[in-house]
Structures are given as C-alpha cells and as structure tokens.
C-alpha cells in the first residue's frame, strides 16, 4: 500500500514547525515505507495512530546527567527554553517511570554497566538520546583509557545530538525528532514486546545473573 505524500507529512507533524525544517525526513519516510510494506489492518492502524499520538506527546525523561551536557539539559528544562511546552518536563528520578534517557555527558568504563543497568530498569517502550560528542564517539576524550567510544556500543540509540555541549535549542530539536520517530512507529506487534510468562521471566533473570558472574 503506497502512502501519499501529504499523509506522510501529517504523520510526522510537529506543531508550528514546518516539515521541511527537519533535516532527516528521508530517513523517517523510509521508515514509514518499510513499516507499511505489508499493509496494516485499518482498525489496528487507527489505534496505532491514537496510541502513538499519546506516546509521542508524553515522553518523560529520566533525570540523568554525568557532566557538562547535563547542565545544558537543566537549562532546557529551565525558564528560557522550557521543555514543558512539549510536555517533556515531568523528569522522573526513577528509571521505572521514565520513557527516554538523555545520556548527557561522557560515559566512562566504570559508568557503562551502570548506564546499561539503568536502561534495563526502564519500562518498555523506552528510547535513548545520545547527547554530545562524548556519547556519540568519545568526543575530546576519545583517546582516553577510561572512556566509552560511543554509547551505541552498549545501548540502542534513537537520536544523536552532536555538540560539545549541544545548545539547548539543539536538544529541543533532538527531542522533537524523537517525538517524530515515536509517532511513526508501529505500536502493535513492534514496539510492545511479546509478554513473557512469569516462569519464562524467572528463567531469563537466572540466565542474566549467571552470565554476569
């Protein structure tokens, strides 16, 4: 089923920002094409749209910051930039209640397992934004003995925001990109993972535990 161009625009609309202002439209259009390749059930599709509207407009960040970028992340929440406008201000300190994690700041070797654990503690569906040069590639500390060269080695990253540190505007842009991405995903059969029974879960836990020791 071919999806019309106007329809596509509607899907990834962000209020009061022209579609062409976003730089990665090709990528998202490709994503939509792939998702719709086999066609979608009408009812599921409509439900999907409703749910994604909700999900996309209600992304709660985890309060997480390791270094410089964290201060800019605070600035995004503060008076001048005010991410509350997008409904993003409900920063949760508990990873269980957060929807996405802004990895703001360098991730070191010692921090990497902690970050992974935080990510694992978050409830599905969850997203990752890599903020700043350090999280993308190691940045200015690339040659250090104790810095992870890009968090995509340990986490599935959805949006990268370059900068050292990125300006608050850049962070808002990145968060809007995440909103667009979320709004395009298919919730049923894709983002919501198959539910596991309690026994399976216990087994998985056991496997995880033994793998670590």
């Amino acid at each position: 089923m071919e999806i019309g161009k106007s329809k596509k625009k509607e899907l990834v609309k962000i209020k009061s920002i022209p579609y062409d202002e976003f730089k990665n439209n090709d990528y998202l259009e490709e994503m939509v094409r792939e998702l719709n390749e086999n066609g979608t059930n009408v009812i599921v599709g409509v439900l999907d749209e409703a749910i994604n509207w909700g999900r996309g407009n209600s992304l709660w960040p985890l309060t997480f910051a390791t270094s410089c970028c964290g201060i800019e992340f605070m600035a995004v929440g503060a008076a001048r930039y005010d991410m509350a406008r997008f409904g993003l201000e409900v920063a949760r300190a508990s990873p269980r209640q957060a929807d996405f994690i802004m990895v703001a700041g360098t991730i070191t070797d010692k921090m990497a397992p902690v970050l992974k654990r935080l990510y694992d503690q978050m409830a599905d569906p969850k997203y990752v934004i890599a903020v700043g040069g350090c999280t993308i590639s190691g940045g200015p500390f690339k040659h250090s003995y104790h810095v992870v060269k890009g968090i995509d080695q340990i986490l599935p990253v959805d949006v990268f925001i370059p900068g050292c540190p990125p300006r608050p505007e850049a962070m808002l842009y990145g968060m809007m990109q995440l909103q667009r991405k979320v709004k395009l995903q298919r919730f049923f059969g894709d983002v919501n993972k198959k539910e596991v029974s309690e026994r399976e879960y216990e087994e998985m836990m056991k496997r995880d535990m033994t793998a670590n020791s």
Binding site: I14, K15, A50, I51, W53, G54, R55, G56, N57, S58, L59, A79, D82, A84, R85, F86, G87, E89, V90, R96, D99, Q121, A123, D124, P125, F187, N192, K193
Partner: peptide, 28 residues
C-alpha cells in the same frame, strides 16, 4: 515558564496523551 502548550490549544490535551502513554507502558 509557560508550561504545556503544544498538545491541543494551551496544551489542554497534554494530560490525555499522558494517560494514553501511561496505560500502555509496561508494568515491570
């Protein structure tokens, strides 16, 4: 600050979105 403004006029639908999100979120 100005608070939620993007979802619906003056952000009034913000909470509807939050409720939808919360309903489908995994219970750990």
């Amino acid at each position: 600050r100005i608070g939620p403004v993007r979802v619906g006029p003056f952000g009034v639908f913000q909470l509807i979105a939050d409720v939808i999100k919360m309903l489908i979120k995994e219970i750990v």
